[in-house]
Computed example of a mutant assay.
Amino acid sequence: MASPTLTDVAEAAGVSYATADRVINKRGNVAAKSIAKVNEAVAALGYVRNIAAANLSRGRVYRLAFLIPQGPNAFFARIRQHIKDTADRLQAERVHVDVIEVAAFAVEGLQASIASLIDKDFDGVAIVGLQSDALIQPLEQLRAKGVAVVGLVSDLPQDNRLAYIGIDNRVAGRTAARMIGMAHAGGKGSIQTFVGSMDARDHAERFSGFCEVIATDFPDITVRDPIITNDDAAILKSRTATILGDRSNLTALYNVGAGNSGLIEALRASAPQRPFCVVHELVSHSRQALLDRQIDLVIDQRPDVEINRVFTVLRTLIDGNALPVLPDLVPTIYVQDNLPADTLTDQMKAQDR
């Protein structure tokens, strides 16, 4: 049986097509009695509004902005590539995207970048967030303009955004702890941790979840104070080399954030008998390090899935619809034996030729 059309709704309600269209698309200037009749007809017929057609008829353009940390971080290079690919695919649906790069872990820089959007004509914004009260005012100003704001990967202050798209980072940290604890097979140990910044909610939550599991389930393993790296590969390389030169019962390494290329370089130059090592995000250098047995495990948050969800969520919010219940984004654990095809790296290399 064919789905009911707007013509069917108009006939059932006893109103003109134009009136039914104004009610369905919330254009106003319709009598309350007619609105009630149209809504009753919609419910009775099971009519579902064709948002794409409605947007096309009124020339709707989705203007989206993504605020992404700048720099050579390979994970955010993946994010940028997925944004570009998705935006290219959605051009026919009038989706326009700007990627705005901001300094990593810089609260003032992020505050200024958010504030700069207030006078621009964006419908929706996705922001890799930090936890700071300094962000509240510009976020509130954006939302007061009717801009849909969501946190991406690392959350914003929760009362000042409409949704968060990313994994549960506390769970990701707990997973890393479980894997490292199991690798110790009941023995004692000492873990050196690295954190990009505690101002980044994803890093703080991963570290907190990690420490919870080690303290509760592996009490014979010590977690050393984290080394703050700002996700700088050079810092990771230097500090890891120093630590490996003075083993002092070191049994494991866990990097909460990025900069893993530096960590891997230091491990590559170290003695064959290295500590157990867990990092986040499957990118070209962490993938190769798994294959070369320089690290043991990668926890990946599937940025392709996250970016697809961001576009869906922003467009739903902009259209004024309630968000559906979405399944949790679950991180994927990779070892050298279950690596997927490296299609994204091949694609990016091809574009560079």
Rank of each mutant, 00 (worst) to 15 (best):
A87W: 07
D119Q: 10
K84G: 00
V99F: 01
S113T: 06
E108H: 11
V102S: 11
Q91I: 01
I118R: 05
K84L: 04
L110I: 00
I100G: 07
D88Q: 14
E101L: 07
E93W: 02
D88S: 13
I114R: 12
S113F: 03
S113G: 06
I83Y: 12
I118S: 04
A106F: 08
T86K: 08
E108W: 01
A87Y: 04
L117M: 11
I114L: 12
L110D: 04
A87C: 11
V99G: 02
I100T: 06
I118M: 02
D119V: 09
A92T: 10
V107M: 01
L110S: 07
I83F: 13
A103V: 10
R89V: 00
V102R: 06
S116P: 08
I83C: 14
H82Q: 09
H82V: 03
A103S: 12
D98W: 04
A87K: 09
V97M: 02
A103H: 08
I83G: 13
D119K: 11
I118D: 09
L90D: 12
D119A: 13
A104Y: 02
Q81N: 11
S116Q: 12
R89D: 06
L90R: 15
T86P: 02
E108V: 02
T86Y: 02
A112V: 00
K84C: 00
Q111H: 05
A104E: 13
R94K: 15
R94E: 15
